[in-house]
Protein backbone atom coordinates (compact mmCIF):
# COMPACT_ATOMS: atom_id res chain seq x y z
CA UNK A 1 0.00 0.00 0.00
CA UNK A 2 1.11 3.53 -0.84
CA UNK A 3 2.58 5.42 2.14
CA UNK A 4 0.21 8.37 1.66
CA UNK A 5 -2.85 6.13 1.43
CA UNK A 6 -1.75 4.27 4.50
CA UNK A 7 -1.19 7.47 6.50
CA UNK A 8 -4.62 8.67 5.44
CA UNK A 9 -6.14 5.36 6.49
CA UNK A 10 -4.39 5.41 9.89
CA UNK A 11 -5.47 8.99 10.52
CA UNK A 12 -9.07 8.30 9.61
CA UNK A 13 -8.99 5.12 11.68
CA UNK A 14 -7.70 7.00 14.74
CA UNK A 15 -10.19 9.83 14.25
CA UNK A 16 -13.05 7.35 14.00
CA UNK A 17 -13.85 8.50 10.47
CA UNK A 18 -14.02 5.05 8.87
CA UNK A 19 -17.27 3.29 8.06
CA UNK A 20 -17.77 -0.11 9.69
CA UNK A 21 -17.07 -1.89 6.39
CA UNK A 22 -13.87 0.05 5.80
CA UNK A 23 -12.78 -0.51 9.40
CA UNK A 24 -13.28 -4.27 9.14
CA UNK A 25 -11.38 -4.31 5.85
CA UNK A 26 -8.53 -2.25 7.32
CA UNK A 27 -8.23 -4.50 10.37
CA UNK A 28 -8.23 -7.55 8.10
CA UNK A 29 -5.32 -6.15 6.05
CA UNK A 30 -3.35 -5.48 9.23
CA UNK A 31 -3.90 -9.00 10.49
CA UNK A 32 -2.65 -10.58 7.28
CA UNK A 33 0.29 -8.29 6.60
CA UNK A 34 2.87 -7.82 9.38
CA UNK A 35 4.70 -5.08 7.43
CA UNK A 36 1.55 -3.01 7.17
CA UNK A 37 0.74 -3.76 10.78
CA UNK A 38 4.17 -2.44 11.78
CA UNK A 39 3.65 0.73 9.72
CA UNK A 40 0.27 1.28 11.33
CA UNK A 41 1.85 1.01 14.78
CA UNK A 42 4.55 3.49 13.76
CA UNK A 43 2.11 5.93 12.19
CA UNK A 44 -0.15 5.68 15.21
CA UNK A 45 2.71 6.56 17.53
CA UNK A 46 3.67 9.45 15.31
CA UNK A 47 0.16 10.83 14.88
CA UNK A 48 -0.39 10.58 18.64
CA UNK A 49 2.81 12.57 19.14
CA UNK A 50 1.82 15.23 16.63
CA UNK A 51 -1.62 15.48 18.22
CA UNK A 52 -0.01 15.95 21.64
CA UNK A 53 2.29 18.57 20.16
CA UNK A 54 -0.71 20.39 18.67
CA UNK A 55 -2.68 20.31 21.91
CA UNK A 56 0.20 21.68 23.97
CA UNK A 57 0.96 24.30 21.34
CA UNK A 58 -2.67 25.53 21.51
CA UNK A 59 -2.64 25.41 25.30
CA UNK A 60 0.58 27.43 25.46
CA UNK A 61 -1.04 29.99 23.20
CA UNK A 62 -4.01 30.33 25.58
CA UNK A 63 -1.71 30.45 28.62
CA UNK A 64 0.20 33.28 27.03
CA UNK A 65 -3.01 35.20 26.28
CA UNK A 66 -4.32 34.75 29.82
CA UNK A 67 -0.98 35.72 31.33
CA UNK A 68 -0.83 38.90 29.24
CA UNK A 69 -4.39 39.83 30.17
CA UNK A 70 -3.82 39.24 33.89
CA UNK A 71 -0.53 41.15 33.80
CA UNK A 72 -2.31 44.13 32.26
CA UNK A 73 -4.99 43.93 34.92
CA UNK A 74 -2.29 43.90 37.59
CA UNK A 75 -3.30 40.47 38.90
CA UNK A 76 0.08 39.08 37.89
CA UNK A 77 3.00 41.29 38.83
CA UNK A 78 5.27 42.15 35.94
CA UNK A 79 8.39 42.90 37.95
CA UNK A 80 9.42 42.93 41.56
Amino acid sequence: MDDILLLDAVERYLNGEMSQTEKTYFEEIRKNNPDIDQLVVEHTLFITTINNYSNIKSLKHTLHEVETKLSQEGIITKTL
Binding site: T62, V66, L70, I75
Partner: peptide, 12 residues
Amino acid sequence: NNDKTAIEAIYK
Protein backbone atom coordinates in the same frame (compact mmCIF):
# COMPACT_ATOMS: atom_id res chain seq x y z
CA ASN B 1 -10.94 21.85 26.40
CA ASN B 2 -8.40 24.67 26.40
CA ASP B 3 -11.10 26.98 27.76
CA LYS B 4 -9.82 30.48 28.42
CA THR B 5 -12.29 31.27 31.23
CA ALA B 6 -11.35 28.12 33.15
CA ILE B 7 -7.65 28.79 32.70
CA GLU B 8 -8.09 32.35 33.88
CA ALA B 9 -9.92 31.12 36.98
CA ILE B 10 -7.10 28.66 37.72
CA TYR B 11 -4.56 31.48 37.39
CA LYS B 12 -6.54 33.78 39.67
